[in-house]
Design a protein around this nucleic acid. Structure first.
Lengths: 215, 215, 215, 215
DNA sequence: TATGAATGAGAATTCATTCAT
DNA sequence: GATGAATGAATTCTCATTCAT
């Protein structure tokens, strides 16, 4: 896990990167500061110059996700895809979105794994996550939906929460399947797979009234 | 977390139940055997009569999930809902399925939390999970889809993996939202919410060709 | 330092005794739990079964001094010497008192050293010490003085606080000189030395009106 | 704690002053060099330019007490009070002495606290203390006593060691009571209190042959 | 079988000391 | 000279595991 250049001491960055790697692999409690120090190539004591306690390392990772990764990586690219897409075609936009999200998730995968695990156990992390990222993404999606509804590409009755949950639910299901249970697949297969996901997001699982509905 | 009656010594069952509670709340590594013993009302040494090591407790929980909960609770009820439903209406079946799955997930929630966390970190757990539960559920769903396609209720082109992933993705998205981010909601609201999820699973997020498509 | 038999696990007593020895020799902060464990002949972890933290060991010693040693050893013998003495002679009583106090101080010397040091740095210890021992001793002395005044052996104008402070000041000065700066002396020399101390406590340092005043 | 101007680098003096403050408050082992550096307003590394090890700081404080404070502050003023007093009255001299000593002790209180604590644990400190200060003070007192005996103000039989120990014992008892257990008292009360101490030093605690003995 | 005291390896954390800048 | 980041040995404390009762 390589973090972007930040105004942060070199060693602190190394420790944070090492911590993300180690904690992502074994979970927070099962990781030791000695392991993190070793992987970061610093003395164990050095860790505690930058992070008062072990828990503060976790906090550091989280803050990083929310502040550094959250806004520019997660939300900005989300906005960009939804609004600045040249495509006037909803299906193409959704597909582009999934693709970009998939790549994003892969690129911050170790960090993601840590946050997901910890969010399961800590209310405060969930709360911050919701406040800083999830609720904002939902707002963006609502604006997007309005635009799509205006263009006649989405149904106005559709609940935006349910719709975005569906997109993300499908995406995560797809991601987990690829990452956890799937085999490494060829790029063209990936694209086909993705098409299937997009179709279901677009038209659901029921029988299509007319096959023209599909692109 | 109450486990069903099993041919298992009373103390072992108590330990397992206590372990599920404790580990679900703090994660495996952060839980201590002394805590589990205390909650189970047994001496710390007693734990090691039934489980050689702490890790074996986790294994015990997992085996329990797979063997005892997996087949009868997870798969059987899945089958029952899909095939023995009186309804000839796909939408109603999906809704019933989601409802039943939601209740099931809630009832085994502590266990679920443990397994999901551990599956994130251990390949072998993922493998067993896939073998014993996920792949079987997929097979069941395939049979169900064939039936639905035959009745003209589902599109034959739809990938069953993608379809079931969609159903589960939507369900899990819904579940997480309720459990982790949601507020406690009234039962009738829950039903409305569920309807929206079902609609999206059924018809997707795109504009409907004709509004009759919706119930 | 041997503690009296108490309803206290054998190991706890051993740890407490070892702690008193070690801490008395090096001071609290400079003593390590590993050292204490070694001297007590137990594993380091065992210490923390009986004392949650290192600081609790100190608290244990203090509680011991106040509750176990304070009342029966310090105050009771104080009372006994002052009131149950057969002697009708103030000088003899004071001498007996000094002798007995000296022996007592020697017998709990390691504990004393710890408490004195810690009392210098911790207000709460001083407070408890005052409440539980010093103020009580002062009360006892006041009663004693009343008796002596009634018998015409002490001046009624003398401030009991100043008087007892003088007795203890002289005693401690004597004790410190013997223990810290003195050489080991013969028993008869000790007695002579003590006599000089008693004289000064009794009659002060000024020229005596008549030499009969002295024994 | 302000040290007098010395031919000593500014930083070294600052470090020494800071060290006295910090160590006096928490004890030597419990104080950290980082704390001392912070309070002195220098970098931690700077400390080790002036003091090879942490222990050398303590040594520095001690040397300071003995060489700089010991002779001029402790012994000279002792001499001055005893011999250059205008008063021909022993009682008045003792009272003046106690007053002056009390003020002196207060002024070097932090340093005193350190030395007393450390003297309890280190033979070598006690030895130097005795050699450089205590034995000298005793010599001075002996000369004083001779003078007083010549004037008929003190008994020739009185042991000078016992007498000076009494004076100091009473003083220290008084000091401790005021500093550690006492409440803040008014100046006039302080003087009354002091009178009582002086009386006891002068005439002891026994009944006075005639009340004229007291001033 | 059940207990829980005892263990000791290993964890997080502290801090005097060094050294490149 | 002065700095303060970096170190790593030492310290406190935790906890899975053992074992005598």
């Amino acid at each position: 896990m390589q973090l972007p250049d930040l105004k942060m001491p070199d060693k602190e960055k190394k420790i944070l990167e090492a911590a993300i790697t180690v904690i992502s692999e074994k979970g927070f409690s099962a990781s030791t500061t000695s392991e993190i120090a070793q992987m970061a190539g610093v003395a164990e004591g050095t860790i505690f110059r930058y992070f008062k306690t072990k828990k503060d390392i976790l906090r550091g990772i989280f803050i990083h996700l929310v502040n550094i990764v959250g806004e520019p990586l997660i939300l900005d690219s989300f906005k960009k895809i939804l609004f600045h897409s040249d495509q006037k075609d909803l299906r193409a936009i959704i597909k582009a979105l999934l693709k970009e999200r998939f790549v994003l998730m892969e690129s911050i995968y170790p960090m993601l794994r840590i946050i997901v695990t910890e969010a399961m156990y800590h209310e405060d992390i969930r709360k911050t996550l919701h406040e800083k990222i999830i609720s904002k993404a939902l707002e963006i999606f609502k604006l997007f939906q309005e635009e799509m509804v205006a263009k006649g590409l989405m149904d106005k009755d559709i609940d935006p929460l349910a719709a975005s949950r569906s997109i993300y639910g499908n995406l995560v299901g797809f991601f987990i399947y690829q990452k956890f249970f799937g085999f490494v697949i060829k790029l063209e297969d990936f694209d086909k797979d993705l098409d299937r996901v997009v179709d279901i997001i677009m038209y659901g699982i029921s029988a299509r009234q007319n096959s023209d509905a599909r692109q």
